[in-house]
Design a protein around this nucleic acid. Structure first.
Length: 519
RNA sequence: GGCGCCGUAGCCAAGUGGUUAGGCAGUGGAUUGCAAAUCCACCAUACGUCGGUUCGACUCCGAUCGGCGCCUCCA
């Protein structure tokens, strides 16, 4: 089953074939680092991190680049507001971005090039475009001459005339055509500026991506990713200037992810905020603004305080990447609940085998996938089937939503196996069954790792794990054990109920008592 | 005005021209001193509305309603 990807350029799923066999160059448009990242900024990185994990799993040698835009109007404005420099602001916000990526498990990015470190490359492209007749200098600026590019509009499927007709921007009289866009902008005093053949200035919005992607990944990228909102004009212009510069296709596959939306409440806002003045709608409007508008958005850091990062990552991957994601705290919390069963399984596994799930080594290549034991045949056949289905889902345009469902199936299959083999009680010494269990659990971890989940233990709630608390719990459970020994059920139940009220769950098992803190 | 996207059971969410998505919640049973966890079963004969094509459509086509995005240097 070949990998198929939906290509925005052709608006259909295509077989995935790389420029150089076995190698993939993947570029994702990164953030303008002028304010703390919000959840929407994590969508692309999480998705394409997952794409890379899967491509690597399938044996590709992948180079994944995300740019950092550290010069831009928004940066200039905000730096002035905060009475700091563009450089300092950019450095601070870049660190915030990196911190968040790390927290949410995006660790497959090979390179984060900075726009300001690639001015020379940009100037080179601009010069080549002028030489080839695709760009013209104008009073210190340089514009791309859109009308000269016969293919302009191919990505967003609109013609030059449509761009002109639809434009809501006031026409810039100086430009030859309303669709023309700045490659180089002359700068005002005090703004960041670099010398150029056309005077001091700074790069246009799109040129940095062309310069950095082609520098690090070659003139034809395999995958170019980004949010749907960037398709026009950003990607369209990037595509135009790159191809006019090199005469080669700029990217084989354009993958666009859907945007985060603020749930149904936001919908109501659009329709009726003029008539309804009530507080609920105001709150919804605020929430909508946080995401769709991304102005004053709640930061990811705030969100991480409310939900485990793993839950948020899982939430992002539970929906197909091209669909809009319906954001709400409730939706994320529900995903957290659905993950509980996995954590219970990992604990069960440890009780049975004494091994820590998180210590299990997993293969990162499909060709070296976890070996499944021959016995019992029905069980391992089921595991093999689920592994195939997982890969089929991912092969189908990275259908992570379907892939996650396989994880749930796998969980159920493993639990059923534990149950029927009585591995928690009499089956503990059944070496064949234990070996099969370990293989199954390893496979679960192998597949989950492709989605970037279950790779490391959840951070323990700080109060639950210290010596004092565990000592105290030891004492309480000892007293309860004595009550149970004398069948003093009212007392033992009271202890359990009171602990439950304190968010401590006590479970009586055939082979002992366990406890854990609830989130 | 232009270019697009979406509408699947209480909720979230895959998918398909005619055979199971999955999760959460809920119900019954097993297990348990009772619970929890787990297993088994049930769970809706679901696909915005109206037409059309077809032997047959949730799936294709048209219209319509509702929601959303972009056309504004938002990922």
């Amino acid at each position: 089953m070949p990998l198929r990807v939906y290509n925005t350029l052709t608006r259909q799923k295509e077989d995935f074939q790389t420029v150089v066999p076995g190698k993939v160059g993947m570029y994702l448009c990164g953030p303008t680092v002028y304010k703390p990242a919000h959840i929407g900024h994590m969508v692309g990185p999480v998705i394409f991190d997952t794409v890379k994990r899967y491509l690597v799993y399938q044996g590709y040698d992948v180079k994944f680049v995300i740019n950092i835009t550290d010069v831009d109007d928004k940066l200039i404005v905000r730096a002035a507001e905060r009475q700091t420099t563009v450089e300092k602001l950019a450095r601070e916000m870049t660190q915030d971005y990196f911190d968040n990526l790390k927290t949410i498990g995006v660790d497959s990015v090979d390179l984060f090039p900075y726009a300001t470190e690639h001015i020379a490359e940009m100037l080179d492209i601009i010069q080549r475009l002028i030489d080839r007749g695709y760009a013209y200098p104008l009073e210190g600026d340089v514009y791309f001459d859109a009308a000269k590019d016969a293919d302009y509009g191919a990505l967003s499927h609109r013609s030059i005339s449509e761009v002109m007709a639809g434009t809501r921007v006031e026409a810039n009289d100086r430009k030859r055509h309303p669709a023309d866009f700045a490659l180089w902008k002359s700068s005002k005093p005090g703004e960041p500026a670099w010398d150029s053949p056309w005077g001091r200035g700074r790069p246009g919005w799109h040129i940095e991506c062309s310069a950095m992607s082609m520098k690090y990944l070659g003139e034809t990228l395999d995958i170019h990713g980004g949010g749907l909102d960037l398709m026009f004009p950003h990607h369209e212009n990037e595509l135009a200037q790159s191809e006019c510069c090199t005469g080669k296709p700029f990217a084989k596959y354009w993958l666009h992810n859907g945007l985060m939306q603020a749930g149904k409440a936001a919908g109501k806002v659009g329709g009726g905020h003029d008539r309804h003045g009530d507080v609920e709608l105001d709150k919804a409007a605020q929430e909508a603004g946080k995401l769709a508008g991304s102005k004053g958005a709640a930061s990811v850091k705030e969100l991480f305080a409310k939900h485990p990062p793993e839950t948020i990552r899982f939430f992002l991957l539970a929906t197909h990447y091209r669909s809009p994601i319906d954001f709400s705290d409730d939706n994320i919390a529900e995903k957290g609940k659905s993950l509980e069963g996995f954590y219970r399984l990992f604990e069960t596994y440890q009780r049975i085998t004494g091994q820590d799930f998180y210590q299990l080594a997993v293969p990162s290549l499909r060709s070296k996938s976890t070996a499944l034991p021959a016995e019992p045949a029905a069980f391992t056949a089921e595991l093999a089937r689920l592994r195939d289905r997982f890969c089929e889902s991912m092969d189908d345009d990275f259908n992570t939503g379907a892939a996650t469902s396989i994880l749930f199936d796998l969980r159920t299959v493993i639990n059923a196996f534990i149950h029927e083999q009585k591995l928690e009680t009499t089956g503990k010494s059944n070496a064949t069954a234990i070996a099969a269990l370990t293989a199954a659990v390893t496979l679960l971890k192998e597949l989950a790792a492709l989605l970037g989940v279950f790779t490391r233990p959840l951070p323990r709630s700080s109060a639950g794990d210290d010596e004092f608390a565990s000592g105290l719990m030891g004492l309480v459970l000892e007293l309860r054990a004595e009550a149970r020994a004398t069948k003093n059920w009212p007392m033992s139940d009271k202890i359990r109920d009171r602990l439950k009220a304190l968010k401590v769950v006590v479970e009586d098992r055939p082979d002992g008592v366990t406890w854990r803190r609830e989130a």
